[in-house]
Design a protein around this nucleic acid. Structure first.
Length: 571
RNA sequence: CGGGACGUGGCUCAGUCUGGUAGAGCACAGCGUUCGGGACGCUGGGGUCGGAGGUUCGAAUCCUCUCGUCCCGACCA
């Protein structure tokens, strides 16, 4: 491609609307332009990057035995009513009426449509297993679109759906997709982890999120430096050391602690460590107060609490709500004779002779013990994991990192097939619902994530497999016949050698061309400039680290080829 | 939906408090010089100041309403 013929509008300045790196760089590098909130036009350069991801996804899906099809974006409400989701889905589902007043919606996902197709066309166990996928634009009317392509309302997604005769088959299908996803993200040159996700009511371990590791991620994840373990912060299992605490139980003692409400203040006043104190946090679980006990230096993990209590929502109670529920001001709460439900983090059960609030203003209790002085309704893992905790799988050292969810694999079971009466006959002639799985990849989000993970102050640094062009050739002498001829020749030769190459043939000053080349992030740059005039050599520069070398016109194609292969071999 | 900020030429912004005939830089067009890390000079084109209503002799500026965008939170995967 010639730069002079390409719509590639780069911006010198940061657009005011973009905050995060990928968003900023995608606008600056002429990837896309916004039409309205969360909705973008993909310009040629951005589309080319998306196509790279698409092709990798397509190849690996096909390799895994899935078949591509394409489903409609406009879907009838009745289909969604069959699964009850037309009402349940919420305002993210964009609903509208067509000219005949038929209720319709824009597909945010396609379980209903695919299940409809399969129930119409497949009737026998002989047709199974099958895995169908599409790469298509989805629309979700997000509450707050943000970060450009990271959370748009319209986005490109690959979604696959598997249908099997039984659970065992579905698990095989799941595993195949899990493996395919690992190949896909590896081929994209991304650093990622597959983390166990909450599989909700279905249970088991059949839901994984694929997270690209990058600072701007929307989720915090815990990864082990020594093994493969990775989990969402909310789900990370805290494994506490087995302590055989044989410290003798001491007598309960009431201590005056005037004005000491915060953990630190109480500890300092009493001369103890926060690890010897148990704090009492009052939460409203679906509006009803529950006290949560945990060690003074720990934090409650809301999701774990929510799951334990089996409620839809938990929130930390305001001071007033706490007082209304317990008659005690915050800061002096404790589990002894508290009038509300009490649950405790597992760690509390290993502690002895600890300090708690006395449920009386300006007093705390010393030498309190679970079982002797109070009882709790449940003991469970309720706190946030920390980097001091051991890896729950191998005991290794944990790290916290941010992650961007780019893929999700999920075993669905029979919930959709049952509600939509999608059945087949098994080998004994029995009617059975299909056992389903669904598998998504946010294609446009992968591009954003790749940029989040691969950039520097000057712009994007594309991994070779995702780069719209592997090479940019800068002709610094468009008005110089010799340089232009050499550039054109190189451009042709590189194309013939199978590269995607951009020839910067604009009549611009060298500085502008260098800046744009860096911004656009192609892995290699070849400059035909003054060193060519002087001694007949061209310069190859690697975007990633600035490594630069010179070669003559006869050697340059071969050299570039080997450098690119090196890059491909790195990941 | 709560909290905050902002809408002025294609882009980044000043001007708004204190009303008095719309500015800068970049980009664009022409000419000249320049040419290996976003050059310089001269000339030029381009703006219903998001929209509507109001106050006023006079509104980008003050008031009311409205539309849109971004950020934080809740929400979602």
């Amino acid at each position: 491609m010639r730069y002079t013929q390409m719509l590639l509008p780069t911006l010198k300045e940061n657009p005011a609307e973009a905050e995060v790196v990928s968003h900023r760089l995608m606008l600056r590098a002429g990837f896309m332009r916004k039409l309205t909130s969360g909705v973008y036009t993909y310009l040629p350069y951005g589309l080319a990057a998306i196509r790279r991801v698409e092709n990798i996804v397509r190849e690996e899906m096909n390799r895994a035995g899935a078949q591509e099809l394409m489903m409609p974006m406009v879907q009838p409400a009745d289909l969604w009513r069959e699964t009850g989701r037309y009402d349940k889905y919420g305002p993210e589902l964009l609903r509208f009426h067509d000219r005949h007043e038929r209720e319709s919606c824009l597909g945010p996902t396609h379980e209903e449509v695919i299940t409809d197709i399969v129930r119409r066309e497949l009737h026998s166990y002989r047709d199974l297993p099958i895995n169908l996928y599409q790469i298509q634009t989805k629309f979700r009317d997000e509450i707050r679109p943000r970060f450009g392509l990271m959370r748009g309302r319209e986005f490109l997604m690959k979604d696959a759906y598997s249908f099997d005769v039984d659970d065992a088959g579905a698990e095989v299908a799941y595993r195949k997709m899990y493996d395919a996803y690992k190949r896909i993200f590896s081929r994209c040159g991304l650093k990622f982890r597959a983390v166990q996700a909450d599989s909700g009511a279905i249970g088991g371990s059949f839901s994984h999120e694929f997270m690209v590791l990058a600072k701007t991620g929307e989720d915090t994840i815990v990864v082990c430096g020594d093994c493969e373990y990775a989990a969402n912060m909310e789900k990370a299992v805290v494994k506490i050391a087995e302590i055989d605490n044989t410290e003798p139980l001491a007598d309960l003692e009431k201590v005056e602690t005037p004005g000491k409400r915060k953990v630190d203040a109480v500890c300092e006043f009493m001369g103890i460590a926060p690890s010897q104190l148990v704090k009492t946090m009052v939460y409203l679980a679906d509006g009803k107060p529950v006290a949560v006990l945990l060690r003074g230096d720990r934090e409650v993990e809301d999701v774990k609490l929510k799951n334990l209590l089996g409620v839809a929502d938990v929130e930390l109670a305001e001071d007033k709500a706490v007082f209304d529920a317990t008659g005690v001001p915050t800061g002096y709460l404790g589990p002894v004779n508290i009038p509300i439900r009490v649950v405790a983090d597992q760690e509390v059960a290993t502690m002895r002779n600890f300090v708690v609030g006395a449920n009386e203003k300006n007093y705390h209790l010393k030498n309190v013990n679970l079982g002797r002085d109070f009882e709790v309704e449940a003991v469970a893992d309720l706190r946030q994991i920390t980097t001091e905790d051991p890896c729950p799988q191998c005991g290794g050292k944990l790290e916290l990192t941010e992650g961007i969810e780019v893929g999700h694999v999920f075993k669905l079971g029979t919930s959709y097939s049952e509600s939509m009466k999608a059945v087949f006959q098994d080998s004994e002639g029995q009617e059975k619902p299909f056992v389903m799985g669904c598998y998504g990849i946010g294609v446009s989000r992968v591009v954003a994530a790749a940029i989040e993970q691969n950039h520097d102050d000057n712009g994007i640094i594309f991994p070779v497999p995702l780069a719209p062009f592997q090479v940019v050739v800068l002709n610094l002498g468009v008005n110089d016949g010799v340089m232009t001829e050499a550039s054109e020749k190189l451009y042709r030769e590189l194309q013939e050698a199978g590269f995607d190459v951009l020839l910067d043939d604009r009549d611009e000053r060298p500085g502008s061309k260098f800046k744009d080349a860096d911004l656009l992030g192609m892995p290699f740059r070849v400059t035909v400039g003054k060193s060519f005039t002087k001694n007949g050599t061209m310069e190859i520069r690697r975007r990633r680290d600035g490594f630069t070398e010179e070669a003559g016109p006869d050697a340059i194609v071969a050299l570039l080829k080997s450098r690119i292969n090196e890059e491909l071999a790195r990941s």
